[in-house]
Design a protein around this nucleic acid. Structure first.
Lengths: 218, 218
DNA sequence: TAAATTTGTTAGATTAATCTAACTTTATAG
DNA sequence: CTATAAAGTTAGATTAATCTAACAAATTTA
């Protein structure tokens, strides 16, 4: 049995690994807002349970078993977010906090039913892929908007770092997934972009924002 | 802040109080399957938090504050059960276990949304009343089927003790809330009843079953 | 009403998850 | 290549929720 606390460590490890590969104790500590000694001792425990590879003074890695468990938690999180948006009418900026709690519910059927009612979605409301029933994730290679060049026409496919404030900002600019965006110009001094989309002929987006918008070329 | 463990004690107290008024430590201990010394110490803690009245060797009572908190937890439980049945297609025998977990989720909006999507229901799938936003419950006086007499025609309005097995049994007999039931005869030796309802002209129900079926006279 | 049973409490141990303080190892910067 | 900084560990304390063993109070029964 995996405790609630353990689930949170696995999830954090999974998320950080996907960004930066191996994860050290310090990063995990910051991510979870839990002091390093606590993280160290939890790593020993998860190592005993064969959920992570851990050796003193070295970065931590999820085992296959750990990846699967983490994937299944993230599956529950993302299915929940999708359900909250699609079936309950929440905004995409509201769902993360609720899903953080719902993801720990132990009931295969509950999440199966969500999946079914949603029509087996592949991505959550932020464009992140939903792991399958084995916890396996299918990575789609997106590009950062910030790496595109003037004249490119792209489709907004996902957003990174789903803080509620960032999502509210996107709402105010009517930036939604699936939207076609044309890059009109790039300011060389601050890398901000002037783009057009929907009914907005000219919007300026800071580099920070453009780094968090994932797009596909069309 | 009320912890998950504390919430479970409050809920148990609320439920037991409605059946038997004052509740002693032993009953609470059995209900929660937690040993008596643990219950005693938790009563002291809840008493400090002004959620219960507690004095050594005396029965425990919820304070007004405790009643409100307990009512709100039960509200979340029952809204969840209703949502699972009405919006997600679960059977009434499957929802208790899931609701036991969902009831602890901290999100006003989540349960507001359920309430709204359900059209502000007054009762849960077992006919139990749903407390209002202040945790207040409106009691409707039902009669036990076991207390009715031959010839009575009644409407099945609620069921007590919602164990999954009991509910599955009701499913096999096609006994649903709202059903009109006619009492054809009562066996004096075991108090079992022969009744007719729906497409079933003659069904025998044991006294144990009849005590758990709550009805209104029509 | 005295004995037996049930109910309740106290004391102290245990477990999981956290912390702080002190120390060690590894990495970085002159 | 040493010295300093950053990262990591160990040891020991803390808190919440649980337990068992032993004792005490209340209730039931003979």
């Amino acid at each position: 049995m995996i405790s609630l606390a353990e689930e949170n460590y696995l999830k954090a490890l999974f998320n950080l690994s996907n960004e930066i590969g191996e994860v050290n104790v310090n990063e995990l500590s910051k991510e979870l807002k839990i002091k390093m000694p606590t993280v160290t001792s939890m790593m020993k425990k998860l190592s005993e349970k064969k959920l992570v590879y851990y050796e003193s003074y070295k970065p931590v890695k999820l085992t296959e078993k750990g990846k699967k468990e983490a994937g299944l938690i993230i599956r529950k999180h993302r299915l929940t977010e999708m359900f909250l948006v699609e079936k309950m009418g929440f905004g995409w900026e509201e769902v993360h906090e609720i899903a953080e709690q719902v993801e720990h519910i132990q009931s295969f059927n509950f999440f199966e039913k969500m999946d079914e009612l949603l029509g087996f979605p592949q991505v959550d409301p932020h464009g992140s892929p939903i792991p399958d029933k084995n916890g396996k994730i299918t990575w789609v290679e997106y590009n950062k908007l910030s790496e595109c060049k003037t004249g490119d026409i792209v489709k907004l496919s996902a957003v990174i770092h789903t803080s509620s404030d960032f999502l509210k900002f996107l709402n105010t600019r009517e930036l939604k997934l699936g939207l076609k965006i044309k890059i009109k110009s790039i300011e060389s001094f601050d890398k901000s972009m002037v783009v057009s989309y929907g009914k907005r002929p000219s919007e300026s987006l800071s580099h920070t924002v453009c780094e968090r918008l994932l797009v596909e070329h069309v």
